[in-house]
Design a protein around this nucleic acid. Structure first.
Lengths: 254, 254
DNA sequence: AGTTGAAATGCACGATATTGCACGATATAG
DNA sequence: CTATATCGTGCAATATCGTGCATTTCAACT
């Protein structure tokens, strides 16, 4: 019966996950004629590897950004709103604000003051959706093909559109932040877009949860020196705060 | 039967809600083979998370459409999904589809087949939000200042962007439709945008609830002759169907 | 061939999440 | 106003989880 090597089984499961299927532990156990414990170990390994999301009863594919993004946003939503509240205090009346992709900026979209006559611009569909539901803010959205991995528009037309803007305060979304490598991100196109963004912005603000500090990603967006303000959680390690402050950014604790 | 992990079930329900569908507790209980209590708990959790509005018997979507339209849209949303299902059958593989602003097209965004390799374009923020939550469709959004009255982008830059498109099938949003005055609408800018849209589209499709027939609005968008397909409810008065058909449009009853 | 050590497995156990049911309260329909 | 459906809550039953541990499998090495 059990004619499937362990690695092959894991790979088979991973394949289904990558294909977008949700898998159930009990079903897989039956199917491969192994105990649920073995399956659970597989799923845990896959989850640790970032190839799926472990849930009660089985595992969910990681690919559907909509689900994973909203769930992820829902998990840390309180902490991100704390950061966002601090970020909202930075804006001045009449400023042109850019909200880049990212769940922290999604929270910020809900926290921005509505009575300052801000001009808000975004390239993110979820952020546009939040802004749209507010009655007190006018905003514009960048056009182009929506990149589902990233959550917004980052194509060539968007880069061109950005280059015609003049932004007072840009809230950058970031995947990783380290003293040595600066701001890094996973997607190459997204990195190019962010560089264009930085080029037309007076001030750059970055919000970072503590777990994002001292992590890395393949594509460098900017050195730390490009940042004007860095919003960290109150529990951020002091040593790291010092290192980051030394790079010239103003540190705000939320 | 019950091979759906709890989290996946909740996410599935949330997905429908996000797409603008109303859900009924009893139906979901039957569908997922769990007791209504479990479903009620799910809905309560979703409501606490702000992803839906709990009502007697089920839950309502916290519609992407803001207050201006949502009041009536919530009531008519089921009827619009019926129209949308009929509209979805019209599209052919590989077509370039444009979804104009409008609650009927919002419903269509959820009903479009995902396996035809469609290229979908929209100028509406709520529609983009729905499309974004589907993993099976690629789409692009037009950039520009978002008009809150209209629900999407209709400014000069959007008109220019439209003129660079070549659309196979355009689903027009309409406020009013009459035999004598054709397609009319309340907002002047929106009218200009729609005219540009018609200019670059091979085929124009319009969905209309029965109460929209024989109503008027200040700005004429196009004569009836510009329409290729008109999707009406099954209870549309026959006399009116004849009048509309005589203008050359193909009538589809949903 | 025999040995060895890492990986995998199944089982037991306490911990946690989810479920279904019972009950009184509340909303909707006629 | 009464009858019925749905709701919210508390509680016991069940399913799933994570971990520790002894055993087994398997491939690499002597």
């Amino acid at each position: 019966m059990n004619d499937t090597p362990p690695v092959a089984r894991r790979e088979l499961i991973a394949q289904r996950l990558d294909q977008g299927q949700t898998v159930v532990a009990a079903v897989l156990a039956e199917e491969f004629s192994v105990s649920e414990d073995a399956i659970r170990r597989d799923l845990r390994a896959l989850a640790a590897q970032g190839r799926c999301r472990r849930v009660y009863g089985g595992a969910l594919p990681i690919s559907p950004m909509s689900a994973s993004m909203s769930v992820r946003a829902a998990e840390d939503i309180d902490r991100k709103h704390v950061l966002a509240k601090a970020a909202a205090k930075l804006v001045c009346p009449g400023e042109v604000i850019f909200l880049d992709n990212g769940s922290a900026n999604l929270a910020l979209a809900a926290e921005l003051p509505g009575d300052l006559g801000l001009k808000v611009i975004t390239n993110s569909v979820p952020i546009a959706s939040v802004l749209f539901q507010r009655q007190d803010l006018d905003f514009m959205i960048l056009g182009g093909v929506v990149d589902r991995e990233v959550g917004g528009v980052i194509d060539a037309s968007a880069v061109l559109a950005v280059q015609q803007l003049s932004i007072d305060r840009c809230f950058l979304g970031a995947c990783a932040l380290s003293v040595r490598h600066g701001v890094c991100i996973f997607d190459a196109g997204d990195a190019a877009f962010k560089r264009a963004l930085i080029g037309v912005s007076e001030a750059i603000v970055l919000m970072a949860l503590t777990e994002k500090l001292e992590t890395r990603a393949p594509h460098r967006v900017a050195p730390l020196e490009a940042l004007d303000t860095l919003i960290l959680e109150a529990d951020a390690p002091e040593a790291m705060q010092d290192d980051l402050a030394q790079a010239g950014a103003k540190i705000v604790l939320a």
